[in-house]
Design a protein around this nucleic acid. Sequence first.
DNA 1: ATTTGCCATTTTGTCGATAAAACGGCCCGG
DNA 2: CCGGGCCGTTTTATCGACAAAATGGCAAAT
Lengths: 245, 245
Amino acid sequence: MMEPQGTTAMTQAFDGAALDAGERPSGGGGTLLMYDVYRRIRDDIIMGRLEAGRRLRIEKLKADYGTGASPLREALSLLIPEGFVDRLEHRGFRVSFVTLAEFDDLLSMRCWAESRALRASIERGGKDWESRIVLALHWFTQAFPDHDARDARAGERRRLHKALHMALIAECGSPLLLDLCSQLFDRNDRYRSLVNFAAPADRDYVAEHDRIVEAVLRRDAEAAVGALVDHYGNLRRQLEPILTP
Amino acid sequence: MMEPQGTTAMTQAFDGAALDAGERPSGGGGTLLMYDVYRRIRDDIIMGRLEAGRRLRIEKLKADYGTGASPLREALSLLIPEGFVDRLEHRGFRVSFVTLAEFDDLLSMRCWAESRALRASIERGGKDWESRIVLALHWFTQAFPDHDARDARAGERRRLHKALHMALIAECGSPLLLDLCSQLFDRNDRYRSLVNFAAPADRDYVAEHDRIVEAVLRRDAEAAVGALVDHYGNLRRQLEPILTP
DNA sequence: ATTTGCCATTTTGTCGATAAAACGGCCCGG
DNA sequence: CCGGGCCGTTTTATCGACAAAATGGCAAAT
């Protein structure tokens, strides 16, 4: 049950992680040590650098993230309701497990929630909304040629991918729905990382997104939702062999 | 903008708050000081004992809840993503504001989410599910004759009301959907408290729930969802005059 | 040989103390 | 008379230390 120490390279000390700003649990500034740790641990879990089931011992985390216990505990507490961390009362924290059941739940919720958000956006969105989608697609497409999960730019690609999907539904008009979709997206990305490590690239990500965006810009809600649901369903196929040994 | 100190009676020190157990952010034991203050602050906000906009100063909270700063900060951090508390970076915490816009967003999300959950439950639920609903309705009905928001049993009534609504959707099969509904319910209850203080009882709560349960037990999904949506919409009517001065 | 109970060690959860940041009042200048 | 900048006070965010709980190993008993 215990992990070999050196295998998974941890994010060492304070490297310039200022790139992916603009990601708080729900609004807030930025100069708060706790939010920095929060984001770094969360990213480490999502990107698979902290693998499922791993115990998160405070002393080790203090060393790895170069901070005190108080911000760490606050950060870990936040990650629990988001489903990334489990708490064993009086026995500390650990990275939550990944299961096919949870993924299926996520998938079903995502299709349902994002379909609603996308339809509303298509109905309400204006020219500026379209512009932001076009732009997001551009940067996403440009960043995607290289496609290695272990790559240093993997985090940046993930950020651009999320930006594109959030841009699509940005005009749905419901802050709560946007929050929900954002959280589901992040949680789902753990499984995407898993796949990217095991079975890299047997699908054309760029084409799938082109198809969605093209339907959205045509204001064809049915086609757009269909393309989106297909897009999400594809991960299921890739994931099944990995998670059922 | 600042509040007169003595007006709102605070929950003083450690009174026997052990009644409403079984309410963690998302699973967990119970013997953890932090979860206790979390639940107490949350309830105080939902029940209106901590009014919107009020600054939550650590020193005062330490005195009121009889605990140290560390569990308090963790508890407050948890209440932020749930929408009950706002954080002003380097300026501490305060109770979040209530707005008609947020309520409308909540209402729309709730109708949408619970409709799905209820339909799924009606499709999948068995006899034991029906039993738990009948039971929940019984206790809810019995507790409701007295109906004063300032009442000492108001917290217990709220608990029974939530138990009934959760029992209805319990068999939807999706943990994520249940979590969502639970959170939306709590957030909505803040507005219910507001109404109960201002305009007590110009509707027949028991009859409204009877109508929902009756349709559910008949397995009439359309009627059940209709009754549920009406039930939620009624609060909107009562709330509008209060929140638009 | 296996199980049971105890003790030392480790790790958590909580508490007081410190440094940094924001607030409020005052003085000064326009 | 009013606005802007400086300084003391208050409050926050973070750090190190303590006490309670859990883990693991050893010895004794079945």
